[in-house]
Every structure is written in C-alpha cells, then in structure tokens.
C-alpha cells in the first residue's frame, strides 16, 4: 500500500524521556524490518521502522533527535496522523538459533522479529535478544522480551545494567552457538556486528538506513554506492552477500541534497 491512510493514535507509551511508542489499531500486514512513512500535515514526512505488528495493532517507536521527531512527541492520543506502508524489504528467518542485535530504536524491529520467530515455532531458548544502550534507562523492550521467554543479553556503556561495554562484547560470547545474526542500530554498530559475523562466517541481515524522501523507489535519495540499490525498495534489509557489495556501508551516507557525509 503506497497511498496515505489517516489513522487515529490509539495509545501512546513513553519508553523513556524523549522516546515514545505510538499505537495504531490497523491491519498493516507488515514484516519485521519494514518501515512506514509517517506524515504530520504541515510538519513533513519521515521513515520509521515498525516496532511491533500483531495483525490487528501495530506501533512505532520514535526518539526525538531533530525537528520532526521532537514535534511528534507532542502528538496526543486520539490525534490523527498519516501512514504510508509497509515499505521496503524485511528480515528472513534462517537457521535454528538466532541472535537479534538492537541499538537505539533498532530494538523495535528486533523485538518484532523475536516475536515472529516464536510465533512461527522457534524455541525461545534458541533466540538471543542482544540489546545495548548508553545507560540502563535507555534500554528498550526488556519486559516485552521477558514475556516471550527469549534469552536477553544486555550491555550498557556505563555498566549500570548488564555487561559494561558494547553489544559486540555480548555477541562474541554467544556467536558460536548462533546460525544467523540480525541487526538494526547506529551504522557503526551495525558495521561492527557485520564484521564479527563475517569473521565467524555467520549469516547476517542488517537494516541499512539512508535518506528516504519518497519511500517508493522514485526520487533516488536512498541509493547506495556502487550498486545504485534503493534502500526503500532493494533495502533497507540486506544480507551479508549484498552488504559485501555496498562499499559505502559503515563509511558514508548522503544527505537530502545528495552530498556525502562520513560516519
């Protein structure tokens, strides 16, 4: 569906100060890794990952970092916003044991994938939810993952909860047991996870976020070098063989004008 639907915000949950989840009662039929374009009339439209979708209700989790994402924190329950989607490629469940590595709002699609895996019959003990943040108050969806009984591995930069360090430190400890590694987070974290997966010859799928204007493969703002793939159509989820061909991964991305910015 690429036409805008206007949906009522059913519920809002503050995950931590500056980050909220917005719930919609709507059958989106999305898969983990896909995104929607969120339209606030007058303010603009931005891509947001689907953090959960049970077929009847879905939600998105937004961190206020700039004009749009801060403005949306002021939206109230009962307000109406525009949604276009689901858009883009999604994660594919592969193997018997999986690791889901999330950073920041990337925890949303990872938790969604964990729920889908359990729903499709994968044993919760074979699913590793690896989540990292600066400090313990910024960790997302720990309770949600406890409910479905998957293994939870937490790292914080300051050691306030779980292991002190980076998600890759936690991933290293379990990597030999897992068949496939999934990751959504800041790009340098994704690159570190990908490198680790390569080193251990594990299958790996990562969401590569690029400047998304249209979301339907027309404007070219999300194209990557040197393949020209559009991250709204051929991505955002790419597997290890595809990532190998994207030379800009972990190096640079383009802004709204098309200018390169290094990470």
């Amino acid at each position: 569906m690429t036409e805008v639907v206007m949906l009522k915000v059913e519920k809002i949950k503050e995950e931590y100060p500056g980050t909220k989840s917005f719930f919609f009662n709507h059958t989106l039929n999305s898969q983990p890794g896909q995104f929607v374009m969120i339209w606030l009339p007058g303010l603009g439209e931005k891509p947001m990952s689907i953090a959960a979708d049970d077929g009847k209700q879905f939600y998105i989790t937004i961190s206020g970092v700039g004009p749009f994402s801060k403005a949306i924190q002021g939206v109230k329950e009962g307000d109406t916003i525009g949604i276009r989607g689901p858009l883009g490629t999604h994660f594919n469940l592969k193997g018997n044991t999986i690791a889901l590595v999330g950073g920041g709002y990337g925890a949303g699609p990872m938790a969604f994938l964990a729920e889908l895996a359990v729903w499709e019959g994968m044993k919760p003990q074979n699913i590793h939810y690896v989540i990292g943040a600066r400090t313990k108050d910024l960790l997302l969806f720990e309770q949600r993952m406890k409910t479905i009984g998957v293994n939870i591995h937490i790292t914080t930069d300051d050691g306030t909860q779980g292991k002190q360090g980076r998600v890759t430190d936690a991933l290293k400890e379990i990597i030999e047991e897992v068949d496939t590694i999934y990751c959504v987070g800041p790009e340098m974290m994704e690159k570190a996870v990908y490198d680790l997966a390569q080193e251990h010859q594990k299958e790996c799928e990562i969401s590569l976020e690029r400047y998304t204007k249209c979301g339907i493969g027309i404007c070219g703002s999300c194209c990557v070098d040197p393949t020209g793939w559009r991250m709204c159509i051929e991505g955002p989820v790419l597997n290890q063989d595809q990532l190998k061909k994207v030379s800009e991964f972990g190096k640079y991305h383009r802004d709204a004008t098309g200018k390169k910015n290094n990470f």
Binding site: G220, C223, T227, G228, R230, R254, G258
Partner: peptide, 16 residues
Amino acid sequence: SGIVDTTASALLFALK
C-alpha cells in the same frame, strides 16, 4: 531526469 538518478551508481543501475 529526476527519477532515481542523483548519483552515478543510480544512473548505472538504470543502464543495467
């Protein structure tokens, strides 16, 4: 002009 063609890589993708 204006449809998936802001970069060299995108232009080559269409040729491909």
